[in-house]
């Protein structure tokens, strides 16, 4: 076995184990951390495939931003994981059987030799994957790129539309209304007789 294969199997083993930990860990923070490890090893496998840009993006975006947010949320919300796990063991035999069957079938169907692929020749050391991707994104795939941007816009609009609540109790002042006010409108002098408040039973 050559060196890249050893690295591949090493990383894959860690990836699988950490993936397993994500679903089996009792503590949600541990599960999130295991997911970080899974992303990290996946990035390692991509580096092995000479997809440096994707690997770096995975680490920067997912590990650096998304997972940190995720861990924040997990820590802030007191999630009762035992509640969510109810019925895990009773459903396990059937679910395990179905999953096992599917894995066996997929292994039978999807061998590496089925696709007739050959490994591409290695690129020169000064070859920039990132530059190539950038060139493709803004020329050949500009339509898809713009569509992805529109999808992100929709995500923003949907998130705001679904969470922005205009509560009546909000103490917000319209600046335009505020600056239109005059001295006469601001205060009104009234002449009232002094009154004695009625004594209520609750106050007594």
């Amino acid at each position: 076995m050559d060196f890249p294969s050893i690295v591949f199997y090493f990383l894959s083993a860690i990836l699988l184990l950490s993936g397993l930990r994500v679903v089996t860990a009792k503590n949600p923070v541990h599960a999130a951390l295991a997911l970080v490890l899974a992303f990290f090893t996946a990035a390692g496998i991509w580096i092995l495939l000479e997809a440096e840009f994707l690997a770096i993006t995975l680490v920067l975006v997912y590990v650096g931003a998304v997972m940190v947010l995720f861990i924040f949320v997990v820590m802030m919300l007191d999630i009762n994981i035992e509640e969510m796990r109810k019925g895990f063991w009773s459903h396990l035999p059937l679910a395990g059987l179905v999953a096992g069957l599917m894995v066996a079938e997929m292994v039978m169907v999807l061998g590496g030799d089925r696709f007739g692929l050959t490994a591409p020749a290695a690129k020169a050391a000064d070859y920039s994957n990132t530059k190539e991707l950038g060139l493709l994104l803004y020329t050949d795939y500009v339509y898809a790129f713009e569509l992805a941007a529109v999808i992100l816009l929709v995500a923003i609009v949907a998130a705001i539309a679904l969470t922005l609540r205009r509560k009546h109790s909000r103490k917000i002042v319209d600046p335009g209304w505020q600056s239109r006010q005059t001295a006469t409108g601001r205060i009104r002098m009234v002449n009232m007789k002094p009154q004695h408040p009625e004594v209520k039973e609750d106050d007594a």
Partner: peptide, 25 residues
Amino acid sequence: SHFLSLYLGLELLSLSLYAMVAMER
């Protein structure tokens, strides 16, 4: 006429519809 644009169009449609269904909060 491409898997990519088919999928992106589908996601654009679906994402907007999910939000529209949830609009009556």
